[in-house]
Design a protein around this nucleic acid. Structure first.
Lengths: 247, 247
DNA sequence: ATATAGATCTCGTCA
DNA sequence: TGACGAGGTCTATAT
């Protein structure tokens, strides 16, 4: 595509806050929270209506470069080609896309605004444990599923029949060393705030699995691991679609 | 665009491992590591040559849905429209994009393979501290910048003139509670492995800033915070471009 | 394959 | 706005 035609189309679409995608050959410089350089190659450039910019290489999930929403965009001439200059003053981020060739260009006003409904996250997991405390132990009585309280971000808080406080930390994936130190931090904080001996505050890690080193550290701190899998409320979707077309 | 035309173009581009982008009105179901549903709306769909799939809404940086590389893709008819069925057996991920309308379609064989050169990350920061230990203190003698050793993933390890061991944890952003617990874990591990009193192992947090609670915890554990900014080796790029076109 | 930790993380939530 | 933690995190690296 001719540079002139691209420039006209791009600027018109940009002014109307349309979504824009183009394939091009380009070189990229980034300066801001870090510094980056990407030599000439073919890439997919996405410019959204909120002035988000994404640069994707032809492989991989993550963008190789990007600019956050509300960036200022300007297409300027440089020698015989163009530079898409992007700046985000909030983050002090600057991105230059030097465009040598444009293969394809596409623009359209897109209407959405809907939000993804997601199930099977950590919150669902702690809800499940609060509702079915026997998943932890027959001894466990949950009192609250509190987040963002003065006691911290504890997933499930309760006590046992022996009068101990019990703190449950949920992880939807394999529990790591970091997860155990997080649990330890909560146990120490509760012990401090409530003025209770640390031996009276029990830490429980609830996760589908746990790494060997995490297990070792857990045992060193007299915490316990309980195997719990995250729930999947919307599993009917995958079942429905299996009945339509077999995977 | 007509459904028939879209199907032909898509399947041909897919078979040639070209990069594909289209704007469409669609509904999305995901089942795998979690479960998700996104009702009808306009989105940007990206299919890369390695069978990565990205679904973007018209605003925001992150994809609302995605499939990792090497997914199996199939476009099947459903009533009067199409479903792009994606499956990734490695991750047991399944994504259905029910396509009601296609506004624009674009495909092209893209050639790249270059890697981003990035400066200003945590590794650069620990390299800098190793080279300029006076950034930490006049007393600090770095011995190693080790990662992934038997001692753990310590950023910079060394000692001071008083014969204490010194562990430096670098963060390129505001140090949080989690960062301090990480440092604490390393200090405890070194103390254990080397058979040295914990009072003889000094913990240093090096970061551009630190949160109040993290600072409090740091002091409780007798660690110290040193303000260090991540280096920006490639800053010349932004200077160059400033001389070309003023921001 | 698993374990570990960084990331221009991004995103939501709350004080 | 900063602080804090989750994420279908993703990605790189070492074991």
């Amino acid at each position: 595509m001719e540079i002139k035609e691209f420039k006209d189309k791009f600027e018109q679409a940009l002014s109307k806050n349309e979504s824009i995608v183009f394939f091009c050959n380009c070189e990229i410089k980034y300066s801001g929270r870090a510094e980056a350089f990407l030599a000439r190659g073919d890439r997919i450039i996405i410019v959204k209506g909120d002035n988000t910019v994404l640069v994707h290489q032809p492989e991989g999930s993550s963008p190789v470069n990007y600019m956050k929403p509300n960036s200022k965009l300007e297409l300027v001439k440089h020698k015989k080609h163009l530079i898409l200059k992007c700046q985000n003053l909030d983050y002090k981020d600057y991105l230059d896309i030097e465009i040598f060739r444009v293969y394809n260009f596409m623009n359209h006003k897109l209407e959405d605004g809907l939000k993804l409904e997601l199930a099977g996250n950590e919150k669902d997991m702690s809800d499940m444990i609060k509702a079915k405390p026997e998943l932890i132990s027959n001894d466990f009585k949950p009192l609250s599923r509190e987040e963002h309280t003065k006691f911290g971000f504890i997933d499930v808080f309760g006590h046992d029949k022996k009068g101990n406080m019990v703190i449950v930390e949920c992880k939807r994936y394999t529990a790591s060393l970091q997860c155990v130190t997080q649990l330890r931090r909560y146990v120490e904080k509760i012990s401090e705030l409530k003025g209770v001996s640390i031996s009276k505050v029990k830490g429980i890690m609830a996760s589908p699995s746990i790494s060997p080193n995490a297990k070792e550290m857990l045992e060193k701190w007299k915490f316990k691991w309980v195997q719990v899998n995250p729930p999947k409320r919307l599993e009917r979707y995958s079942k429905d679609q299996k009945s339509l077309v077999e995977w």
